[in-house]
Nucleic acid binder design. Structure first.
Length: 112
DNA sequence: ACGTTGACCTATA
DNA sequence: GTATAGGCCAACG
């Protein structure tokens, strides 16, 4: 059993480009349902990690770029998302429901 | 060591 | 459907 943060990094790293997921989905997938805040903390430490973690692909339940401020500049996250083909309007991911990447539906389906 | 904050989510009113 | 409250666990002051 690796550290919780490591699991989060791995999961986030497996998010395909042009797709986004929510903290709650990750927390629930790791068995930490309700403790979604810890996922956010993990993301905060992701900058310290040697491996690059596409934290910009992780947004809140509303598809709002809540953590864009922690990227150094509030524009980096939006630029990264737009660079992957994700439309961002008013700090909100467009068609969030469409590009939403559910670990249960994707990873679990493959593993199972 | 205690209190507050935090990249959130769910539930109730 | 919007607004408010509570809960969760860890780090920072």
């Amino acid at each position: 059993m690796a550290d919780f943060y490591q699991q989060v990094y791995e999961l986030v790293r497996q998010i395909p480009a042009g797709r986004v997921t929510s903290y709650g989905a990750i927390a629930r997938y790791l068995g930490m349902a309700g403790s979604s805040r810890m996922v956010g903390w993990a993301m905060n430490l992701s900058h310290h990690q040697e491996v690059y973690v596409p934290a910009h692909r992780v947004v809140n339940r509303n598809g709002l770029l809540t953590g864009k401020i922690h990227f150094g500049s509030p524009d980096i996250m939006q630029e990264l998302l737009e660079n992957e083909g994700i439309k961002v309007e008013n700090d909100c991911v467009a068609d969030f429901n469409r590009i939403f990447w559910d670990p249960f539906k994707e990873l679990d389906a493959q593993n199972s």
